[in-house]
Design a binder for these strands. Structure first.
Lengths: 228, 228
DNA sequence: AGAAAAAACTGACAATTATCATGTTTATAA
DNA sequence: TTATAAACATGATAATTGTCAGTTTTTTCT
């Protein structure tokens, strides 16, 4: 099993602020596991006794409403740490984490994290910066949801996907989401998302090859996102 | 001018994790100021060189869209610390802070905060807890915005106002917001908010005396919020 | 490969919400 | 205390978005 000291993923998250000794401790207590597409890492209401560090794959963090609708609040990829927030506030998980594709995650028990947090200010501040950044993003989502139309939000979603998950060698978005997931990211009905995506195709803003989607007219899409 | 050590407000925020010496430092560098209703404490895009600790009054944290709509992301009251997030990530302010009623705030320069963050893990963790809690609330708002109707969100808003700001001696909500502000909290058009509030009055869910609003049927309002 | 299931799509329609126009009431200030 | 502005209110209408019902396409599994 890999040692955290050598894990490239660490560069992306707050673990980089840990000392050699702390990392060793994390390394000794962590466990690595594979999560298949569609599997749940943790569910809303679960008591978490550690955090999950994403080494590979993508997870959606979402909340299910009583009427069966499910809002995706965030997509977490390589380097992200899941469950951090709940562990810090010592509350049960507020969202559930489900694998969007096959994943590899490291589970790090709560104590290893909390001890470092309480003794290493560098680490605490680093975690703080990450959470503060997440908070900013969440605030932006709130504003988008109330000030933009579904069409604008879908256009933004494609741009977001390209910027954050990149493209494959053929220019298609590296992260392929189902129409339902896209609908749940922007907070609309699946059918509405499908219709708008079809329109985008007809307008030449995007192109599709099977499930794969590519941005064909970045400027055009940007215009739509800003509100034609 | 008051000394932070004796400030009751401190009980509500992360400053309580500071040592005597740190508090003294904060106390020596802080300045107190009065902000009149409607005045801006800081605006979106401002570079903040400190945080604002609310001693009295309420501030709305909001973002204005190009088309003139303004989304209130959060209402901050006694004990809240404004601008904390931006100071931590060293970014310009993401939201603007405007006084909803007359306020008294203490400005604490950035350095006093950052130095303590970097040296006192207790303080850092305490701030972390606060921001983590804010993040949870923001996530909940995202979910509400996408899964609930305007009517449900307005019902929730009244319940939220009563729970977080209390009632006056006559049972009216202690915090009086204009219909426009309520609309901006729930993310809808002012006219829509007005209509729904009128309906609530007709249904006996709330009652109004001038600008003052009181919850008349808490259970009924709860039902509406949950989705009749 | 072929059956079954899941996802994508389309149309018709209903519900929700926004917009515009305008009148009324309430607050603010000279 | 009025005038003036701001906030509140209501109707009519349009635009957006959701729901339901059904078809086609794609994926998955044996």
């Amino acid at each position: 099993m890999g040692r955290c000291e050598n894990c490239i993923i660490r560069q992306f998250n707050s673990l980089r602020a840990m000392s050699k000794e702390e990392l060793k401790r994390v390394s000794d207590t962590k466990t690595t596991k594979l999560v298949k597409k569609g599997e749940t890492i943790f569910g809303e209401g679960d008591k978490l006794n550690g955090v999950f560090c994403v080494r590979d794959g993508v997870s959606k963090l979402s909340k299910l409403s009583p009427n069966g609708k499910d809002q995706i609040v965030k997509l977490a990829t390589k380097g992200a740490v899941l469950g951090q927030r709940s562990v810090i506030t010592e509350e049960v998980a507020n969202l559930s984490a489900i694998a969007v594709n096959d994943m590899e995650v490291c589970f790090v028990p709560k104590d290893a994290i909390m001890d470092s947090l309480n003794s290493n200010p560098n680490f605490a501040v680093e975690v703080l910066r990450h959470i503060a950044h997440d908070l900013k993003e969440a605030d932006d989502v709130i504003v988008n949801m109330s000030q933009k139309t579904v069409k604008q939000r879908i256009a933004e979603a494609f741009i977001y996907l390209e910027e954050n998950f990149g493209k494959d060698k053929n220019g298609y978005l590296a992260l392929t989401l189902s129409r339902e997931d896209i609908a749940n990211v922007v907070g609309t009905a699946t059918e509405s998302a499908i219709r708008i995506i079809s329109d985008f195709k007809k307008l030449g803003l995007i192109k599709a090859f099977g499930k794969k989607v590519a941005i064909a007219d970045r400027n055009g899409l940007n215009e739509v996102a800003k509100g034609s």
